[in-house]
Design a protein around this nucleic acid. Structure first.
Length: 426
RNA sequence: GGAGGGGUGGCCGAGCGGUUGAAGGCGACGGUCUUGAAAAUCGUUUCCCGAUUAUAUCGGGACGUGAGUUCGAAUCUCACCCCCUCCGCCA
């Protein structure tokens, strides 16, 4: 959520933001129209309420002095009725203004490259164990689903019997690899000072609104019927909401969390995409990092967060590149985002495996997460950040495809062997 | 699922429908005292919105949430949410 003051007093900045993101300007116009009426009405009501308070005090005094109050009581009643009537309208306006404000996206940071869509994202750097470019295979590399089938470690057919399309059933070494990665990532993150969290994966509407999934992206979420809960699409939701409606001390910051959770996504509107394999699932596992920091630190923290996610790929020896999302591809709540894309030999292309974002105070304002500076009056909103470290299913894909051998066996990356108990899947 | 109890400031805990934004205590911060500390003692200590001659002042709002009664609600009524205890059920 943007600061109402910024929207009102710095409207051109918001206009520019919407243009760069390929949004229409109509939401802004609608908001301003409602907001202006709301402010005007509020001023009137506050004036009348002030008058009513004065009169009520007067009545109390008169009654104490055993004086007659019939006349003044009539005036009080009139003002009170007037206020009640106007307040009804004010409530409607407040709700409408809030609804409009909640669907206005965050303003991109000035360092975010301008661009219309994902084709204009900017590559920042590339890494591989052999220095930059991924190594060539001396045989035609297979897709991960073919490799998985050879070892019977992922069963897509039975998964669709049990649940449906876009679900997977991990078996034997496949299940073990998934578990090994989860432990490896959590151990590495916690060793760097991230506190491990195991949060609820069903959350309420307020939490989804706090991080920005609602009200705009209801279609992308799974939801239970009775009682009503939303299934989290990322651990970002429960973990960021840990501090919803709290005022933190300056000394508490920064706060670093890491959490493993399953994630659930409807994937509505992506019917044709990635129908085979593990890339796009309704349910997948992910280890997430979430930070709460002081505003002046957040961009430095974004670089560190991204580096921490990269570190996992490097330790696993997986080639990747870092992409800065352009304004047209930037997510709704984010002010700046780096995507990490891992190289998949089976597809001969890079695929997203992590997304690291600074939300500045956008989520903090929605979720009302503030902090108090030592020796200063008042409160400020914290800045929140998060990033995948990493998406586990896609890491499985990357390991199977990058570590496949000519005979179909898969070598386990050095760093993972203590978790896997074997050196090769054959 | 059944029965009962409760939600007040950073925490504990008062609060006959009318100077109660809220007693008292703890904590925290500042002063006095002290070589220093402790003790003692005095003082300060919630947040949001708006106006403005703008670290001051003024107005409005907030005692789980929402509605109602009333000139006036932390205080009365209703609904909902959350927490606790007992019984039942359950991994």
């Amino acid at each position: 959520m943007l600061d109402v003051k910024v929207v009102r007093e710095n409207t051109s900045r918001v206009e520019e933001s919407l243009r760069k993101r390929n949004y229409g300007l109509s939401i802004l116009d609608r908001f301003l129209k409602i907001e202006n009426e709301r402010r005007e009405l509020l001023r009137l009501i506050e004036e009348k309420r002030g008058r009513r308070n004065k009169i009520s005090e007067e009545i109390a005094k008169l009654k104490k002095g055993k004086k007659d109050v019939v006349l003044i009581l009539a005036e009080a009643k009139d003002i009170s009725d007037f206020i009640t009537e106007k307040e009804e309208r004010l409530k409607v306006l407040e709700e409408e203004a809030r609804q409009e404000l909640l669907i206005i996206p965050n303003i991109p940071h000035k360092s975010v490259p301008a661009g219309k869509d994902e084709t204009e994202n900017v590559e920042i750097r590339k890494w591989s164990a052999s220095g930059g470019v991924p190594k060539e295979f001396d045989f035609p590399p297979l897709n991960h689903w073919d490799i998985a089938a050879m070892h019977d470690i992922i069963d897509f057919d039975r998964a669709s019997k049990i649940a449906g399309a876009r679900f997977s059933l991990m078996k034997g070494m496949g299940a073990r690899l998934e578990r090994a990665l989860m432990n490896f990532m959590l151990d590495l993150n916690t060793s760097k000072g991230y506190k491990e969290i195991l949060p609820p994966i069903l959350v309420n509407r307020e939490s989804m609104t706090g991080t920005g999934q609602l009200p705009k992206f209801e279609m992308e979420l799974f939801k239970t019927a009775d009682p009503e809960f939303y299934l989290i699409p990322t651990a970002e939701v429960p973990v960021t909401n840990i501090h919803r409606d709290e005022i933190l001390n300056e000394g508490d910051l920064p706060i670093y969390y890491t959490a493993y959770t399953p994630c659930f996504r409807r994937e509505a509107g992506s019917y044709g995409k990635d129908t085979r394999g593990l890339i796009r699932q309704h349910q997948f596992n992910k280890v997430e990092i979430v930070k709460f920091v002081k505003p002046e630190d957040s961009y430095n923290e974004l670089e560190k967060l991204t580096n921490d996610a990269e570190d996992i790929l490097q330790r696993l020896g997986l080639p990747y590149r870092v992409i800065a999302l352009c304004t047209g591809d930037l997510g709704f709540s984010a002010a700046k985002t780096y995507d990490l894309e891992v190289w998949l030999p089976g597809q001969q292309r890079y695929r997203e495996i992590s997304s690291c974002s600074n939300f500045e105070d956008f989520q903090a304002r929605r979720a009302n997460i503030r902090f108090k500076r030592e020796g200063k009056k008042g409160t400020e909103f914290v800045h929140t950040l998060n990033g995948s470290a990493l998406a586990i299913g896609r890491t499985v894909v990357a390991i199977l495809e990058n570590y496949q051998q000519k005979d179909g066996s898969v070598v386990i990356p050095e760093a993972l062997r203590e978790y896997m108990g074997v050196e090769v899947i054959r």
